[in-house]
């Protein structure tokens, strides 16, 4: 996202969430991860935690659809201590909780800041949803949209707010491309057409250090966040 521009191309403010805590300290950078069911959002969050936890103070908020499955996955794999992971329940409407009524998620983020802070980075994972789900600018500072090659190589062409407007598009499971007949070149071309200058990363989280490009992008966001 273009943090140096306070408004977007329509003149609307880019970041509406207050950026300072009551003590005057800058709050943690908040990054949202959205995308369809099964594309690898939780795996991305887990891999990011493992890659970044030694250098950053991290916390995670999950928005499961009807269980605490995602939070439990993160706990079971011990990517972070349990007190750094909070699950928000969304009443059958995961997109409402990250976009239209963000109050429960804001509460969760603020409680994490208060209980285990100071934090450098909070990752907010949306419940798996459809291609129109995006995070409110009042909740996150940047958002990653995670799709995968097995969901069909037409997804970038179909576009939608997540594919075309997210700050980072991740195309996961590239290792499966030959098996499902997905053409990565077509996906890259379509993503470019939808996204213009916004970045797209192709990765396979199943491979060792497959998350490295995403972790690098997150570090860049954090450097920009801290520079302002």
């Amino acid at each position: 996202m273009h943090r140096d521009h306070p408004t977007d191309e329509f003149g609307a403010p880019r970041a509406t969430a207050p950026t300072e805590l009551s003590g005057g300290r800058r709050r943690a950078l908040r990054i949202g991860l959205g995308g369809p069911v099964g594309s690898g959002k939780t795996a991305t969050v887990a891999a990011l935690c493992r890659a970044l936890r030694a250098e950053l103070s991290l916390a995670v908020v999950t928005n499961d659809i009807y269980t605490t499955e995602d939070a439990e996955f993160l706990l079971r794999h011990a990517v972070l201590p349990p007190e750094r992971i909070t699950a928000v329940e969304t009443g059958c409407c995961p997109h409402t909780a990250i976009r239209d009524d963000i109050s429960a998620n804001l509460e969760a983020v603020e409680e994490l800041e208060a209980s285990v802070g100071p934090l450098d980075l909070v990752l907010l994972e949306s419940g798996g949803d459809n291609l129109t789900a995006t995070f409110s600018r009042g909740l996150v500072d940047a958002q990653i949209f995670v799709i995968d090659v097995a969901g069909g190589d037409k997804i970038p062409r179909k576009g939608g707010p997540g594919v075309s407007g997210s700050d980072l598009l991740v195309v996961n499971k590239t290792d499966l491309a030959p098996l499902v007949g997905a053409d990565l070149a077509v996906m890259a071309r379509d993503a470019k057409a939808q996204r213009g200058e916004l970045p797209t990363l192709f990765c396979s989280l199943a491979e060792p250090d497959g998350v490295a490009p995403i972790a690098g992008w997150v570090r860049e966001q954090l450097a920009r966040w801290r520079a302002h």
């Binding site: 928000v88 969304t90 009443g91 409407c93 909780a97 239209d100 009524d101 109050s103 429960a104």
Partner: peptide, 11 residues
């Protein structure tokens, strides 16, 4: 019902 006060997640 769309007033953003969290009610949507409660039954």
């Amino acid at each position: 019902g769309r007033f953003p006060a969290g009610g949507h997640a409660h039954s």
